[in-house]
Amino acid sequence: MSKTKRTPAGEALTGFILELFRANGLLLTAGDRLVASLGLTSARWQILGAIVDAGRPEPVAWLARNLGANRQNVQRIVNDLERDGLVVFEVNPHHRRAQLVVLTDKGRQIFDAAGRLQTPWVNGLADGLSVKEIEAAHRVIGALRDRLEESGER
């Protein structure tokens, strides 16, 4: 029985993906530690960021899509954020059941405070890396994400 072998690019990408998995786990742990004093987790912080990045109120399903995340998981976290007064739900004039998620003043203050904590941390992580290297890694990850989205791997 013959076994299909990875191409050299497939082998390199496999190693890259494994490093991404490891880095993701470490980033989530570091993020949890960084914002714990604000009552946040990495997941909650990420969703606040998606709300801010959206630029306008969006339903949970759209936030989940933008994050490449499971809608039910995002809904659970948004419900927690609402319970803690960081977001509110507003009526969606385009869809009766899909309420819009809106950041509250408290939510904005917490998100801004997280950003103030993140700045020295990320600057330290970036120390010794060139902007060119970071931009190249960003392009590779972006291309990988695009291919996964095109193939329906979301």
Rank of each mutant, 00 (worst) to 15 (best):
R139E: 14
R139S: 09
W62M: 12
G39N: 11
D84H: 13
A36G: 05
V78Y: 02
E135R: 10
R96M: 07
A114L: 03
L86D: 00
A43E: 12
F16T: 08
E153S: 07
V101S: 00
G68N: 05
F21E: 12
W62L: 11
G107E: 00
E90L: 05
A143D: 10
E153R: 08
R33I: 04
A98W: 04
V52N: 03
D80W: 08
T4G: 00
H95I: 06
G55E: 06
N123L: 15
R56P: 00
F111S: 02
F111Y: 13
D84I: 07
A61R: 13
A23N: 11
S130D: 08
L63W: 02
R44M: 11
R83M: 10
D112Y: 08
Q118T: 15
N73K: 14
L148H: 10
W62G: 08
R65I: 02
I77G: 01
M1C: 03
N70S: 12
I77F: 06
L27T: 14
A136G: 10
V52R: 04
P8L: 11
E58Q: 13
L86W: 02
E150Y: 04
G49S: 10
H94R: 11
S2A: 06
W62H: 12
E133V: 09
N70W: 03
G115F: 03
R96N: 07
W45I: 01
R139T: 13
K5L: 06
A136I: 05
G142V: 08
D146I: 04
N24F: 14
D32K: 01
L40C: 10
W62Y: 11
R154I: 10
G68P: 05
W121E: 15
S37K: 14
A50G: 15
H95D: 15
R147W: 02
M1N: 04
A113N: 02
L148W: 09
A136H: 14
A9W: 07
V87W: 03
A9S: 13
L13Y: 05
R76Q: 09
I77D: 00
L100F: 07
L26V: 13
P93L: 04
W121F: 15
G128S: 07
A43M: 11
G39C: 04
V131I: 14
G25Q: 12
Q72R: 11
V87F: 06
Q109G: 03
R56D: 05
T4C: 00
L103S: 05
A98E: 14
R147Y: 01
K132G: 13
I47F: 02
G152K: 06
L125Q: 15
L28V: 12
L117F: 14
D105Q: 11
I17L: 13
A143W: 11
E149T: 06
R108S: 04
V91D: 15
V131N: 13
Q46E: 14
R44L: 09
L20I: 13
E82V: 10
A114F: 00
D146H: 07
A23G: 06
V91G: 10
L144Q: 01
D53F: 02
A61F: 08
E82R: 14
I77C: 01
E58G: 00
N70L: 08
L20E: 09
F89D: 00
L125T: 10
Q99S: 13
V101M: 03
A64E: 03
P59V: 03
D105E: 13
T41A: 10
K132C: 04
A30L: 08
V122T: 15
G85S: 12
K5S: 09
H95L: 07
